[in-house]
């Protein structure tokens, strides 16, 4: 249809999806421990601006990614201290964190729009990326993309097959029982929150350094909220989060190409289509209430107060 090349579309969708996927897989682990952090958007955009600033100033994208992770983690730690140690309400604190992150990133990013970040080299030699069809799809990406898929696999394995994963699930299922058995509920949750923050920050840094290669105020444009929706869409299962992220990315990449091809649909409708489709899929997936409830961590969003 009007010259949309399926191979470049797939390559683009993988790039578009990765920030959302990273944030979603981090939030998935956080929610598995029973914590609902609605501050994903704020952590992502803080990661985006810090990653961009550090990458531009040092000339090292790796340092940029690390800075993105560190800033996301730092922001999540604020959330962690407030909700886990000072027992504040998770929903309100998470929303505040998003607002805080949006404001903070706008401040930190003053003067940076239009700067050029260093080029990120790909891990595979260019010759491999020139293999027809599978070359660009499998070997033409930056390291972070491979890392994101590995991360999904690692989270899937750890949650399902290790003692650590069992403890994470137990804490999210019934924190009082986990406490009675002697597990450190608050410590486990704080660590998960920081992991989630690092993932969201890395996702943000990838967005500014690799995908857009620029800093624009408010550039995450709701990606953090999509990540939160994806966790529910995925019924807290890592591989389904990957599927959901690629579906969202696919629609986004497709609508950008449809815009470029000058198709006769208003740009605004095309631009909103990924969000509309995400909502529709979410509604369909969640319509079987009992099945979703079965997978949801039972202690999600509940305040844990250790009583001797």
């Amino acid at each position: 249809m009007m010259g949309i090349d399926p191979i470049t579309l797939i390559v683009a969708l993988i790039t578009v999806s990765t920030p959302v996927l990273l944030a979603a897989i981090g939030e998935l682990v956080v929610e598995k421990t029973g914590v609902l952090n609605l501050g994903v958007e704020g952590m992502m955009i803080t990661g985006a601006v810090m990653g961009f600033v550090v990458a531009v100033n040092t000339g090292s994208p790796t340092l940029g990614f690390l800075a993105g992770m560190a800033s996301g983690m730092a922001l999540s730690l604020i959330f962690g201290v407030l909700t886990q140690l000072l027992l504040s309400n998770q929903v309100a604190t998470g929303l505040a964190l998003t607002l805080f992150g949006l404001g903070l990133s706008a401040l930190l990013g003053v003067g940076y729009p239009g700067s050029t970040p260093p080029v990120v080299s790909d891990p595979f030699p260019a010759a491999m990326a020139e293999i027809p069809v599978i070359g660009p799809i499998l070997f033409g990406h930056s390291l972070v993309i491979y890392l994101s898929v590995l991360l999904v696999a690692a989270v899937w394995y750890v949650l399902g097959y290790t003692k650590m994963g069992l403890i994470i699930r137990a804490v999210g299922e019934n924190h009082d029982a986990a406490h009675a058995l002697g597990y450190k509920v608050i410590r486990i949750r704080l660590m998960a929150i920081m992991f989630g923050g690092a993932c969201a920050g890395l996702g943000g840094a990838f967005l500014s350094i690799v995908r857009v290669q620029n800093w624009v105020d408010g550039m995450t444009a709701g990606a953090g909220w999509i990540a939160l929706a994806l966790v529910v869409f995925a019924s807290w299962k890592p591989w389904r989060a990957l599927l959901g992220a690629y579906l969202f990315g696919g629609v986004t990449a497709l609508q950008l190409r449809l815009q470029a091809a000058g198709i006769d649909i208003p740009v605004e409708i095309l631009a909103m289509s990924p969000y509309v489709i995400t909502i529709v899929v979410l509604v369909i997936m969640s319509s079987d209430k009992s099945r979703t409830a079965l997978n949801a961590p039972a202690a999600l969003g509940k305040v844990f107060h250790a009583t001797g």
């Binding site: 069992l166 137990a170 019934n174 986990a178 039972a298």
Partner: peptide, 14 residues
Amino acid sequence: SLFEALNVAENIAL
């Protein structure tokens, strides 16, 4: 002090 969404063996392992 059990976890409803986990199976018997997982509960015991915890």
